[in-house]
Design a protein around this nucleic acid. Sequence first.
DNA 1: CTGTTAGCGCATTCAC
DNA 2: GTGAATGCGCTAACAG
Lengths: 324, 324
Amino acid sequence: MPTASPRPRPTLRDVAATAGVSKSLVSLALRGDPGVSESTRDRILAVAEQVGYRPSLSARTLKQGRSMLLGVVISSLENPYQTEIVASVEDAAEQVGLSVVLAHGSRDRGRLADRVQQLGDLGVDGLVVVSSWVPDEVLTAAARRLPVVMVGRTADPVAGVDSVTNDDEQGAALVVDHLVGRGYERIAHVTSSTRPAGLARRRGYEDAMRRAGLGDHVRVAAPDAVDGLLDDGYRAVFARNDVEACDVLDRALDRGLRVPDDVAVVGYDDTLLARRVRPALTTVQQQREVMGERAVALLTGRLGGRTDDVHEVLEPRLVVRASG
Amino acid sequence: MPTASPRPRPTLRDVAATAGVSKSLVSLALRGDPGVSESTRDRILAVAEQVGYRPSLSARTLKQGRSMLLGVVISSLENPYQTEIVASVEDAAEQVGLSVVLAHGSRDRGRLADRVQQLGDLGVDGLVVVSSWVPDEVLTAAARRLPVVMVGRTADPVAGVDSVTNDDEQGAALVVDHLVGRGYERIAHVTSSTRPAGLARRRGYEDAMRRAGLGDHVRVAAPDAVDGLLDDGYRAVFARNDVEACDVLDRALDRGLRVPDDVAVVGYDDTLLARRVRPALTTVQQQREVMGERAVALLTGRLGGRTDDVHEVLEPRLVVRASG
DNA sequence: CTGTTAGCGCATTCAC
DNA sequence: GTGAATGCGCTAACAG
């Protein structure tokens, strides 16, 4: 089946030639400049459409010094928390006329740093980083040439990089208080993470347990070590995120335990997973829409000239469902 | 409104100035051209590093006419089948020195077409489309200026657009034959899709049932109408993909049925979901790694001058797990 | 070996 | 209303 092969893309020059006008006139007409007569503009638009003209973003970016593009970097496409953040950033970006290009680092952590630089090289006007796996040096380096905002917690604030996150300690405390309110005392924490957010949640769990006078029951285990917890009489488990909560759920059900009657399970993030799984997960909701909106606002703030670092912390909310 | 970046990014000119050489020499040195003396190159590299120089992809793309970038468009970040394809395309692209930028159309179908055009405007060297929601006109228009390959089935071949897909009819037949081999006769099909791939699987199911002499038992239902099937004595369900198979699973378990003892459930796609869920899903595996590899090969083929359309069809494989 | 020069496609003066 | 000229950062062809 023979067809047309990709031809060199038509340029302003081509449009101008076919329309019998000059290049600059076409440029003006296409962007609706008032200084072009109605009739000529219509003719130019028609020609542009007909020859399939599309402006070159490379050329425009080069000329203008800005691309109207935002870069978003996530570590994994398989992580529902991260992909849901992407959507919220995208919605917020669209509000202010910016488009989003996405890059990720699944499979290879080292690739993440490359993608950050690559998006910068591409000329995006700002960068949203939703992964804690990007080395600080890479972030600061990136921040030297464009606005960068981290979504989610970093171990320590990175100079020149704004951030928006939820209060993981408080979120963990919400969970503990909730379970305590339901009469649980032996409440365990399940986590496999050594990332900042995971550590913060663990810290929040431990502190809240102590505040509740349950310091002696503090117990932290890996997801695959849940059996030990159950053997030791723990009947409530707070997992560091929804994915690991689901692992716990499976484990418990495999042992013939009923959730939440025999054991209560609580997650974190309120991803789609939390609603999909049976029983539906009690979990902690971060304000995702707000996070995307704030991230974009911080970026445009920098673009507007702000130079001091801003770190926003949002309040998490407990969502009670069937699992605990 | 975005205005100016904090610091204007350093250019070749800046590096050349601080190093006391000419621009083109810097360009050559940075890309390891042999015609530059060891000592000067080291000095130039040091300066470039020190001032934080990074080449502008916009400028390079404009000059070269190619970006070494591949665009990938998927309809949803929540669809594990699609995101897993992305990873395989990315791996294949890396093999040939191409990077990938990703765009998606979650929430708004119309946005998908925009994203396709936008990636084209950006100057990507080729486009992989993993969604059947992009209108044919948009695809053909895109194919006029750059190589485009569809991954996954289209209703009809689109002129100028290559494709790589699996044989959905055959995949469905594998499922039916498997269930028939296990003694099932009342085998129902669950689908909510009117997309080409879904229709093909349905067709494959119906044909295979008839070939097996079970034409009278052909029964197609929506995922939320599973109860009727079970009431009517159907004890085997073939769902159009893993996600809907999971829905069926939940439904059955809610009714107190055991899987697969009381009812067998089979999915399609072999996504992560199929392995995560309990019981693990019997499902149909498409050759994802091969699909990515072929998609990239088709793109580079076009870039190399091929003009005739190529449509590759891969053989699916049944993966038997616990659910059926 | 090194430096000069000429565009890539576009937006933006500034003349006409 | 319109068109010619300029330069964004980069590469490549050509001179020195």
